[in-house]
Design a protein around this nucleic acid. Structure first.
Length: 250
DNA sequence: TATAATGTTTGAAC
DNA sequence: AGTTCAAACATTAT
């Protein structure tokens, strides 16, 4: 799950802020019983993290590849209607509804104000996003491939493999291009398009049109020139990369 | 139905 | 002691 989806989760779950946990369930190995009685002080996302802040500590949820969640408020789904057959990793029950989270990683953070520990200027979905500091960080590692750079959560918290692939196609840059062989303007463009695409991802996902907007990710031919798309694991991270050998030359 | 993949942490091995 | 890397985890659309 990528940053924009977490931003949507943050929005959808706001009805539970200020609510008390009445009961818990789920197959998490955490001692979840101690969450009962806690009041949710804040729910927010940062990068690919979703935070539930309680009085003196909080939960940090990471959905990894296959994680998902569902919630109802006053009996109505607030997360869209997809069926859930699995056992929740954690289920939180409130007087106004409940939240179920599935196949995710959950960590307890012993902080009363986790929000203040995050740097939102490197969260791609934040209004505090700062493209200048991103550029500075990128310039420090000239030997990195651009496909790795875009996935670097220290620089682009929230950017995932879909955003990476779509952005590189949009700006016609080969995924294995080294930072050192890109001009400052090209890098700035990459940064700005990543921010822009992430916001589009958010909008499209809310409209349920995200997949319809894919131009290269999991596609067979290039939407621009109809050249056969190459699918390969690239970079140190060896994540699947889709690119057009005609539009994106190294 | 078998396969591929919106990702990160962990701990063993070097 | 620091770095590297495979394993683990987990799900479902295609």
């Amino acid at each position: 799950m990528e940053g924009p989806s977490l931003a949507i989760a943050e929005e959808q779950l706001q009805p539970f802020c200020g609510k008390k946990i009445l009961s818990v369930a789920g197959n998490t190995s955490l001692e979840k019983e101690k969450f009962v009685g806690e009041e949710i002080k804040n729910i927010f996302s940062w990068g690919k993290h979703l935070i539930f802040q309680f009085e003196s500590y909080g939960l940090r949820v990471h959905f990894l590849m296959f994680g998902s969640y569902a919630a109802t408020v006053e009996g109505m789904s607030v997360t869209g209607d997809y069926k859930k057959t699995q056992v929740p990793r954690l289920s939180l029950v409130f007087e106004n509804g409940h939240i179920d989270i599935y196949s995710c990683s959950i960590k307890i953070i012993e902080e009363s104000d986790i929000h203040s520990t995050y740097d939102f200027s490197r969260n791609i979905m934040s209004t505090k996003w700062n493209s200048d500091t991103a550029l500075e960080k990128i310039l420090v590692t000239p030997n990195e491939q651009i496909c790795d750079v875009l996935l670097d959560q220290e620089i682009f918290a929230g950017v995932g493999n879909i955003i990476k692939n779509e952005v590189l196609w949009l700006i016609k840059i080969h995924p294995q291009t080294l930072v050192s062989s890109l001009s400052k303007d090209a890098l700035k463009l990459a940064i700005d398009e990543t921010k822009k695409y992430s916001m589009n991802f958010y909008t499209w996902k809310k409209e349920y049109t995200l997949k319809a907007h894919f131009q290269i990710y999991r596609k067979k031919v290039c939407a621009r020139c109809e050249t056969e798309i190459i699918r390969a694991k690239t970079g140190e991270r060896e994540r699947w990369t889709y690119y057009c050998p005609n539009c994106q030359k190294i």
